[in-house]
């Protein structure tokens, strides 16, 4: 890559909108170091008071599952219905369970 083409590294941004809630992926930013990534995430994704906490992660540190493996990864859990509370038959009249 030509040096003048350099647009810095890609980072993924996760924002927690309120304490108690999970951090959710908001988008990405370009930055050369972690401080810059944090500041850019703040300047871009919390302009309207959307955040109480920010995580930034280098995009290349994230490994995504391959959609081709979806049958292997996710289908086997489909028939494990005993993991859901609705699987169990409660005696009639039982309350608060």
């Amino acid at each position: 890559m030509k040096t003048e083409d350099n647009q810095l590294d890609l980072w993924e941004v996760f924002i927690q909108s309120k304490s108690g809630l999970p951090h959710i992926h908001s988008g990405s930013v370009h930055a050369s170091d972690v401080k810059m990534a944090m500041q850019n995430a703040r300047d871009i994704y919390t302009r309207r008071g959307e955040g109480t906490s920010i995580w930034v992660v280098p995009s290349k540190a994230i490994k995504a599952s391959n959609p081709d493996d979806n049958d292997m990864l996710f289908d086997p859990s489909n028939d494990k219905i005993y993991r859901h509370p609705t699987f169990y038959i409660m005696p009639e009249g039982a309350k608060n369970i």
Binding site: Q7, L8, V29, H30, M36, Q39, N40, D43, I44, R47
Partner: peptide, 11 residues
């Protein structure tokens, strides 16, 4: 110098 910095300076 980069779009991100444009937004930062505007802030």
């Amino acid at each position: 110098p980069i779009l991100e910095e444009d937004l930062a300076l505007t802030n």
